[in-house]
């Protein structure tokens, strides 16, 4: 059973077709009907409502942060969210990792002919709610329909922009020896929610995606430490990839403590069954920060006071030793490398 949509007060408007037709992407009458009845009611705002070929925006002074991402997740609905949540949260989080509050989003949709209107509506409702929570407005967009089989149900590309506050310069190249590495919560929830849903594996308690917008947490961190060195949300490739990107960009090493990294028991169970390392699994509502050592305690306290950072922990530190390598001290006191994944993790035979 799929989770219920977050708002029950917006039923699917009456449409002439219960499935997306090629003509819905033709630019003609059906296209206009789709936009008017399905898209505009969800994202209505003064900029979008002008329906110009472009959005014209007033931005505060400062450096503009911009990020774009395409979402192709299968299944499009999963425990804890949908492709609509990801399309908003994924992009606003990439903007937020610069320290900028996300302001505006552009959204482009590729729809597969035959997609049920009810599914499209449900995705749009999820996007509306996610945008509301993240505090962004969708100011421009596009919709295309491709023949059945030319894409898988729905692909969404979103582009977000925000303005970086003065004095904030966050970069993966800014880690310094002595920095603390802070992880905002548990690992691998999103990736394992997708994998177990896709495979129809059921566990005692259902694994939920952690998809969430993270700017609120970032703002709470910046309020106590405007000189955060690096921030990244460990999505595809997981925490291992983010940490390896840090050490490569900054030419430093990172030492992790295995015992400080937390994984929910049901997620750990699914990882054990499938032979997958949670360090390599995608997250959609977590961040990893490198902060100056002396500021670590304050940042950690601020994070734990925020709903998205209750389980935050200092999981390691930056060192001048072994530049380019992430080394993990195991619970038993030995050391091992945490490598950059070669490719997609594949379940083992035995």
């Amino acid at each position: 059973m799929n989770p219920v949509p977050p708002r029950l007060s917006c039923p699917l408007p009456i449409m002439d077709h219960d499935r997306v037709q090629l003509a819905h992407g033709s630019g003609g009458l059906l296209s206009a009907q789709l936009i008017d009845r399905l898209f505009l009611p969800r994202f209505a705002n003064p900029i979008l409502n002008r329906l110009e070929d472009q959005a014209t925006l007033e931005l505060p002074a400062g450096r503009v942060a911009m990020s774009t991402d395409t979402f192709v997740v299968d299944p499009i609905f999963f425990p804890g969210g949908s492709i609509g949540d990801l399309a908003v949260n994924g992009t606003v989080n990439d903007v937020a990792m610069s320290g900028a509050p996300p302001l505006y989003l552009a959204a482009a949709f590729v729809l597969e002919e035959g997609l049920p209107m009810a599914d499209l509506h449900r995705v749009l409702v999820a996007m509306e709610e996610a945008a509301r929570v993240a505090g962004v407005v969708v100011v421009t967009g596009d919709t295309k329909v491709v023949p059945r089989g030319a894409c898988d149900k729905i692909f969404i590309t979103t582009t977000g922009i925000g303005v970086v506050p003065e004095g904030v310069t966050i970069s993966a190249a800014s880690l310094r020896p002595g920095d603390a590495i802070i992880l905002s919560g548990t690992l691998a929830d999103h990736g394992m929610a997708i994998l177990t849903t896709r495979q129809g594996l059921s566990f005692h308690s259902r694994i939920q995606s952690d998809t969430a917008a993270l700017y609120g947490l970032v703002a709470a961190m910046l309020a106590v430490c405007p000189t955060i060195h690096a921030l990244r949300d460990p999505t595809r490739g997981g925490a291992a990839t983010t940490l390896n990107e840090f050490v490569r960009s900054s030419r430093v090493g990172i030492e992790l403590e295995e015992g400080r990294i937390t994984v929910r028991p049901e997620v750990q169970g699914a990882c054990e069954v499938l032979g997958i390392d949670p360090l390599f699994v995608a997250n959609e509502g977590k961040l990893i920060a490198a902060v100056p050592g002396e500021a670590a305690a304050g940042v950690l306290a601020a994070m734990r006071n925020h709903p998205q950072g209750r389980e935050a922990a200092i999981i390691g530190r930056v060192t001048a030793q072994h530049p380019g390598l992430v080394v993990l001290r195991t619970a038993l006191g030995a050391e091992r490398i945490v490598e950059m994944p070669v490719a997609e993790q594949l379940p083992r035979i035995c």
């Binding site: 195991t330 619970a331 038993l332 006191g333 030995a334 050391e335 091992r336 083992r348 035995c350």
Partner: peptide, 17 residues
């Protein structure tokens, strides 16, 4: 004998201990 054991030995660093 088993690759799963080799993997666990390396992952947990048992050979170092």
């Amino acid at each position: 004998i088993c690759g799963g054991q080799t993997h666990a030995i390396m992952k947990h660093g048992l050979d170092q201990l």
